[in-house]
Write a protein that binds this DNA or RNA. Structure first.
Length: 297
DNA sequence: ATGCATGAGGG
DNA sequence: CCTCATGCATC
């Protein structure tokens, strides 16, 4: 059809609303992700350009502007992409050797920065204290990946739940649908996001690889096991929530005795009230961190 | 997508 | 007990 080289489709807000499946490039079989992309943040783009986005199940999950204006003939119109640039040739980056097998089982997720990758020759002390501690995480990189992850996940026709199940089935860190959701929304602390990123990146690379060999390989992988049961979630009444919130505003960290009193007043289990405060504080923090990412929907 | 629950780690 | 990272359960 059209041999136009299109890339990520973004809207005026800089949000990605569509992309192209990268299954049509013959030369990239497993060397696409986990690439040491430096200045370029466009690992999501390849060549080709269908106007319909469909997953490996043959389902159409999105249409890339079914109008005659989205994909202009020779005008690679670029609405307002904030970061992603389209300076990418049809050829893939490089046959990254063994970058695919990394085991970030725990923290210490090396804050590999663009600069570091560029100097893989010597690998000396990193003169970059910028990436350290709590607020030294590569936020924009994570943000970029989160956005990408979702697009590619959808291209594979997988739901957050399936990814979670697959992640649990595979070796390595396991995560749930909740985690996937929160990651995509960046409704987590930068630290968590940084830890999750390599895991998802690796998994996604493999998933795309299997997808090329046949969707069945991919699907058999997405198994899923039943799960354990747990205490039923307490549901506070709107009134109780109001009272709790008012207390929280006055004091987000009530003492044990105060908690006891509040619990008695509302007639809820003391432990439940205590946990409510804990969660409230945590939610507040995570919500605040979002501003750091400043990229919510 | 989000609320409450769980558990590990730290004091 | 708290914080934090996560997840089951539920909206």
């Amino acid at each position: 059809m059209a041999g136009i080289t299109s890339q990520i489709i973004t809207n005026a807000q800089g949000q990605v609303i569509g992309t192209l499946p990268l299954l049509l490039n013959p030369s990239l079989t497993g060397a696409t992700p986990t690439l040491p992309l430096q200045g370029l943040q466009g690992l999501q783009v390849q060549t080709v350009s269908p106007q319909i986005l469909f997953n490996n199940q043959g389902q159409i999950i999105a249409t890339v502007g079914n109008g005659p204006a989205t994909v202009a003939p020779s005008t690679s119109v670029q609405p307002k992409t904030t970061a992603t640039s389209l300076l990418q040739s049809p050829v893939v980056i490089a046959p990254s050797p063994s970058v695919l097998k990394s085991a970030p089982t725990l923290s210490s997720a090396g804050p590999i920065t663009c600069a570091d990758v560029a100097k893989v020759g010597q690998l000396v002390n990193k003169p970059q204290p910028a990436v350290s501690g709590e607020e030294g995480i590569n936020l924009e990189e994570i943000r970029e990946f989160a956005k990408n992850f979702k697009i590619r996940r959808l291209s594979l026709g997988l739901t957050q739940t399936q990814v979670g199940q697959a992640l649990t089935a595979t070796e390595g860190p396991a995560y749930s649908q909740s985690a996937i959701c929160r990651f995509e929304k960046l409704d987590i602390t930068p630290k968590s996001a940084q830890k999750l990123k390599p895991v998802l990146e690796k998994w996604l690379a493999e998933a795309e690889h299997w997808n090329q060999k046949g969707q069945q390989n991919l699907m058999e992988f997405v198994g899923g096991e039943p799960s354990k049961k747990r205490k039923r979630r307490t549901s506070f009444t709107p009134q109780a929530i109001e009272v709790l919130n008012s207390y929280f505003e006055k004091n987000a960290l009530p003492t044990g005795q105060e908690i006891t009193e509040i619990a008695r007043e509302l007639n809820y289990d003391r432990e439940v009230v205590r946990v409510w405060f804990c969660n409230r504080r945590q939610t507040l923090k995570n919500t605040s961190k979002i501003n750091v990412f400043q990229a919510q929907q």
